[in-house]
Design a protein around this nucleic acid. Structure first.
Length: 655
RNA sequence: GCGCGGGUAGCUCAGUUGGAUAGAGCGUUGGCCUCCGAAGCCAAAGGCCGCGGGUUCGACUCCCGCCUCGCGCACCA
């Protein structure tokens, strides 16, 4: 018996009992089973609310009473071989599966199919998923890390559930921010290389960027204190924006409610910054000149740009490799940023867009239920951010003919994607509904958001290194050194690295993507409780038992009926849930559901290490029980390894 | 001002789309290593599910109002 035949047997029995009570058109597909609360008897529950009024053999009163329906159904189901117990509890019928049949189905399937257990049949659904999207002016931080692990895990979940998945990454490698790093390099760093500096390329270029910001801030500060700066501030005070800011402060003084507005000078300072950069700043002019030379294809600038970008991208690839992440295709903004202009032109002719008096091209947002309008081409004819997104989405359709295009980005871009999808729907009604924004919340620190100016940005590479260091410390201080006896230094480090990555990935995936999450550097690096390390340890424990038993996998057959205890049954039920857990996580694009599933499985398993009297495995004197338990342990290992793999987590045989 | 998303145990978070006595981890308290891995196991304490109304046999979940926190509303990306 397989899980499939077992489950259909269950459904058939239920459906036929319901038909027998008078609901003639009731089929297997109508059966809805729900979980049973912790302390109630039974493995699954059949809720009777939905059957009200449908069982014609019951009298008028009983027919509408879920409690009476449940009693009648329980009677009809009693004695069926698939159930070893049937109980009516209020409006529910609680069903207990026949343990031997369950064990045969679950363990039989898992040991036969191994890591193909729970593979869904391949559907012809093509999914393109875009994630990571780094800028090439600085290394990736904790926010990118969350993006990376969510993107990778969702990709794996979708693959496992039968979709054809293409992973793409768009590298933002052009624009003003890149020129800032370049300028510092040109001025101060011409003979530095990642090799000579002993740094990853992305970190080296990131240093240039930080250096630029420092120089610019100093310059801006000097200007603010100059006569011209003071004059600009005075003008600001009497301007519309200044008066508005003044009023906001007065309103706050009266009510003392909400967040206090910034003081006038700070408001001026931040609102004037761009204007200063673009029209007054000497260093700003140098950057803008670089950008213009880049756009004109100046060979010298392009050569420097290429050198720096290559360094950064090499650094990114190192990080991706460490994380076990790969992409089928890298898109570079420097190659795609002109896409979309023709499409806009075309849409303009069709009346989807309109011209503004100053010659800019705009989209009327009321067409998609929003307010105002969105500029899609500047008055000088150049593109804005959304222009290339429109172009890339359509271009990519030519490449992949996707059924779904998923964008993984932080939730601050929710509005942007709403607008983008709306415009795409107008331009290409045939692609409507294929676009999806998988938006995740920010990662915050205990004292708020990461701020580069305050130096609180958590760097991905540093974080991994710090985590590995911490794991090594725990390993070195472990009392029980048995498991490191045969590990040389390289193996020791490899294990520490694997555990560190497992802990980080599990931590980041354990939150539902949509929610903001707090990252506490002290607590988050913990290895106790609901963590990646805990799951990894339980996998290692399964391997340890099987090693010591000199176990080799065979189809255990009839001995499985030796699995009888409630704890064993709970494990069987957990294992049977694996395919459904994958489906749920994949459909909801939510790896945290898989993380939760795996933790629960581990928890159901972990008790046997202290219940050595009640559940001996190696020392079990009954041969059949011993074989059956070994097979169960093997099956748990298969599911744990596969499930952790769906989170992008590698397992260890010993840790 | 408008739009979107949050407010659940001391803390960090789940809550399968309206169903049984609201869960987990951390933290706290107590108990477990002559015995298959103590990065562990077992147990206890701890909740007006932001507030007020409504719909329903039934609401943490749906609707309305309010309070509160955050994000967004560029010819930036």
């Amino acid at each position: 018996m397989t899980i499939q035949t077992f489950q259909s047997d269950v459904l058939q029995n239920i459906a036929s009992a319901i038909r027998g009570l008078g609901a003639a058109d009731y089929t297997e597909g109508d059966v809805v089973l729900s979980p049973v609360p912790e302390n109630a008897q039974g493995d699954v529950a059949l809720s009777c609310f939905g059957l009200r009024g449908r069982l014609s053999t019951l009298d008028d009163k009983a027919r509408h009473n879920p409690v009476a329906i449940s009693a009648a159904l329980a009677e009809a189901l009693a004695g069926k071989p698939v159930f070893e117990a049937v109980a009516a509890v209020g409006p529910y019928v609680n069903l207990s599966y026949d343990t031997a049949a369950l064990a045969q189905a679950v363990i039989g399937d898992i040991l036969e199919q191994g890591d193909h257990f729970a593979d869904a049949p391949v559907r012809d659904e093509r999914v393109v998923i875009e994630f990571s999207g780094p800028n090439t002016n600085k290394p990736q931080h904790l926010g990118h890390l969350r993006n990376n692990v969510i993107g990778e895990s969702v990709s794996r979940l979708l693959q496992k559930s039968g979709s054809r998945v293409t992973r793409v990454n768009i590298i933002n490698d052009r624009g003003i921010h890149i020129c800032k790093s370049m300028l510092v390099y040109i001025k101060h760093g011409q003979n530095i290389t990642p090799q000579s500096a002993g740094k990853k390329g992305d970190h080296l270029v990131g240093d240039f960027y930080v250096q630029f910001e420092k120089e610019f801030q100093a310059e801006y500060k000097t200007w603010l204190e100059s006569e011209a700066g003071k004059r600009a501030y005075e003008e600001f005070l009497t301007s519309e924006a200044g008066i508005k800011a003044q009023k906001a402060i007065e309103a706050y003084e009266l009510k003392k409610k909400g967040k206090a507005p910034a003081d006038l000078f700070s408001t001026f300072k931040s609102s004037y910054k761009d204007k200063y950069f673009n029209s007054l700043s000497p260093i700003g002019k140098e950057v803008t000149d670089l950008l213009i030379r880049w756009e004109n294809g100046d060979p010298e600038v392009r050569a420097i740009w290429k050198r720096l970008n290559d360094w950064v991208i090499e650094g990114f690839m190192d990080t991706y490799k460490t994380l076990g992440i790969s992409f089928d295709k890298l898109y570079f903004e420097s190659e795609t940023y002109k896409l979309g202009k023709d499409i806009i032109q075309n849409g303009l002719e069709k009346g989807i867009f309109h011209r503004l008096p100053d010659n800019a091209t705009a989209f009327d947002l009321s067409k998609i239920g929003l307010n105002g309008e969105k500029i899609v081409l500047r008055s000088n004819g150049t593109s804005v951010y959304i222009t290339q997104d429109i172009g890339t989405a359509i271009e990519r359709y030519k490449d992949y003919e996707y059924d779904k295009m998923i964008y993984v980005t932080a939730d601050e871009q929710n509005y942007h994607f709403q607008v983008l999808f709306g415009i795409l729907g107008e331009l290409r009604p045939d692609l409507g509904g294929r676009f999806e924004h998988l938006s995740y919340g920010m990662v915050t620190l205990p004292n708020g958001r990461m701020k580069s100016r305050e130096g609180t940005v958590v760097d991905t590479d540093d974080l991994i290194e710090e985590m590995a260091r911490l794991v090594r410390e725990v390993m070195e201080n472990k009392a029980d050194r048995e498991h490191y006896a045969d590990a040389d230094e390289a193996e020791f480090d490899r294990r520490a690295q694997t555990i560190a990555l497992a802990a980080l990935k599990y931590y980041l995936l354990n939150f539902t993507p949509a929610s903001w999450m707090e990252f506490n550097p002290e607590k988050s690096l913990d290895l106790q409780g609901r963590t990646g390390a805990y799951c990894l340890m339980n996998y290692a424990r399964t391997r340890s038992i099987l090693r010591k038993a000199s176990y080799t996998r065979t189809q255990p057959g009839d001995v499985l009926s030796a699995l009888k205890t409630p704890q064993e049954k709970k494990l069987l039920l957990n294992l049977m849930q694996f395919p459904a857990a994958i489906q749920w996580a994949a459909q909801n694009r939510d790896p945290s559901k898989m993380a939760e599933y795996l933790f629960n499985l581990c928890k159901s398993f972990a008790f046997i290490f202290t219940d050595k009297a009640g559940h001996p495995v190696l020392n079990c004197t009954d041969e059949a029980t011993r074989s059956a338990r070994l097979a169960l342990v093997d099956a748990i290992g298969v599911v744990l390894k596969d499930g952790l793999g769906l989170l992008g987590i590698d397992t260890l045989e010993e840790m």
